[in-house]
Write a protein that binds this DNA or RNA. Structure first.
Lengths: 344, 344
DNA sequence: ATGCTGATTTAGATCGATCTAAGTGAGGAG
DNA sequence: CTCCTCACTTAGATCGATCTAAATCAGCAT
């Protein structure tokens, strides 16, 4: 392995061929200014010498970069992964590259990654901020001239574009379905971290909706907790030790619903005793026993929207909607809807 | 917004303070060569002028980069996400940054991303190759001097370090459990893409194991297909129309097991009729009805191992094991084990 | 032969940092 | 007072590309 051989540069290709660096540069960028014969010989020579274009050097000169950073709190969460996927799809179409970086729900890591991305002079940043993100951190990022889009939680006074699902509508939809369709007189909002903006919005509008409709709101069952499937199972099991569940429950996510449903099942409760609605509409939800009613948010499309908003900011306006689609409710067995025509 | 103001460079900080660029550079890198007073005034002035370090320029000069590319086929797959997480953890500890890029199981996208990463002069690349990856693509990447690690599928003649689970052992473990523990006389390997290396290895050793133990191997149920949960449900439903299932089934993943179990359940089959074992041990598996027996592969640790192998190649050997841990079987209800002490 | 046109090609400056090797100045030894 | 350290600072070259403005050249009309 010739490892200490110096890397081949444009100059080497140029010298070896008796042309100038500028010509090689034009060929590499596919410029129409060079003649077909020159182009071919340059490409052949570059290939022969094993030349690889140095993007860092080019970026330094041109002051532009086609990498976009996606700063995500937890890529293991399928919702987050799907959002990334949608964003990536649109970015790729317009010649940008998406680099996903994981903050692992950690403020310091997020701050470090913000700095790194700015220092790398990325073309833009899409971020789902971690729970305890300080406004100052986002403001600092925005001040550094990087085109920026935030999801999930808005920072109103920062002027940073925000994309998010209509969480207020989700809470209302869940509340209306449980109270009006199923006639539940006592309901709860189950799960979700107390600091998470979506939980605050959903829980708020859910509570308003059900209280306005004359149902009572179960405070004990509506205590927030981290939204893992096992956490949900444990929390539900503990609560069921103290007494029966409320008549209807809107869960912060489908995973939370899975945990809750298992606990209910083990205690012998059915959807007729406790109607459960989830949020996210995961693929597993249709096959869970009982099949889980869920409110879908179309994360992939949200990701696409984010990318479009960012590109508009960058100055490469793409076509397609720049607001996310409304959430949709998919009634299944877990709330007692028992649809005759399952979606499989 | 002062948008057209030229970016502040080290030179600006230096001039504004009456020192040299070199001094500013030393301060920015935290060198002990500068005096405390100089350091402080430089930092203050940099902050005042809104200076941000230009990593691209630095990398050009130093010929080094602390970004590592993780080329992943499908970040929505929780297994892939966990591997990325583990790799990231170790890379961060040693001062590197992990940038995850998604190939969406597409050969052209993968090739494009390989090129981009090389052009960006990343410190290294960890890749889970897409199904139809040509050896030439990996060879080309390896030839471009980038430290490289591949997972899931080895490219033996390329000399590229490989990290992967012991799929042969997984197949054998599954086979032994079904045949020896549960006494199944007719078994099958259900699901997985025909081109996927893990499927080939697992299915092969599973078949050998069960045949050697005198059980018969159901070819019809062992046809490969894409490993989605809904695909698995449809495939299983279709097969059940033609007749009863084999006595024992090893599934290519837990998601495949979920789909199969739903189809079995709807037809009234129990774990006593058809014992099911999955692979991956997802969190949902413990809460599925019936709880799903599964072979765990510890994806996070595999990710860590990958990063360690890569770092060794780069020349920053970390401590910790550089071979992945062996898979472990977690017996639950779906194979009929019905453990008295559930893991929750 | 001369001048003009349009198509190619190129020299030299530049992007913003780091590195090398040399320079400066204060304090102590001779 | 001079010389030598030692701690700190710096000028100028350099990394590998792009950009600007000018040069070259062939072909053609005058």
């Amino acid at each position: 392995m010739i490892n200490d051989a110096r890397r081949v540069r444009m100059l080497d290709v140029a010298n070896s061929l008796g042309v100038s660096r500028a010509t090689v540069s034009l060929v590499m960028r596919g410029s129409p200014l060079v003649s077909a014969t020159t182009r071919e010989s340059v490409l052949a020579e570059a290939d022969r010498l094993g030349y690889v274009y140095n993007q860092a050097a080019a970026s330094l000169r041109t002051q532009r970069n086609d990498v976009v950073g996606l700063v995500m709190p937890d890529i293991v969460n399928p919702l987050v992964a799907e959002i990334s996927l949608g964003a990536q799809e649109v970015l790729n179409e317009l010649g940008y590259f998406a680099a996903i970086v994981n903050t692992a729900e950690n403020v310091e890591t997020q701050q470090r990654l913000f700095r790194t991305l700015v220092q790398q002079r990325v073309a833009g940043v899409i971020v789902i901020p971690v729970l305890r993100t300080a406004s100052a951190d986002v403001a600092e990022l925005a001040r550094s001239q990087v085109p920026l889009v935030v999801l999930t939680r808005a920072f109103p006074d920062s002027g940073v574009p925000f994309v998010g699902t209509d969480d207020t509508l989700i809470g209302r939809m869940g509340g209306e379905h449980l109270v009006e369709v199923h006639g539940c007189r006592e309901v709860a909002y189950f799960g979700g971290n107390a600091l998470a903006t979506p939980r605050v919005s959903r829980e708020g509008s859910f509570r308003e909706t059900v209280v306005a409709a004359g149902a009572s709101y179960d405070k004990m069952w509506s205590q927030p907790f981290d939204a893992g499937i096992v956490d949900a199972y444990r929390a539900a099991s503990a609560l069921l030790e103290k007494g029966p569940p409320p008549r209807g429950i809107l869960c912060h996510s489908d995973n939370v619903a899975f945990g809750l449903l298992k606990a209910l099942q083990l205690k012998g409760y059915t959807p007729q005793d406790c109607a459960v609605v989830g949020i996210d509409d995961l693929l597993q939800s249709q096959l869970w026993t009982p099949s889980v009613s869920s409110i879908a948010v179309q994360p992939t499309e949200i990701g696409r929207v984010c990318a479009r908003v960012l590109l508009t900011e960058i100055g490469t306006p793409p076509n397609g909607p720049t607001t996310p689609p409304p959430p949709t409710l998919h009634p299944r067995t877990s709330c007692g809807c028992n649809p005759t025509n399952p979606s499989l």
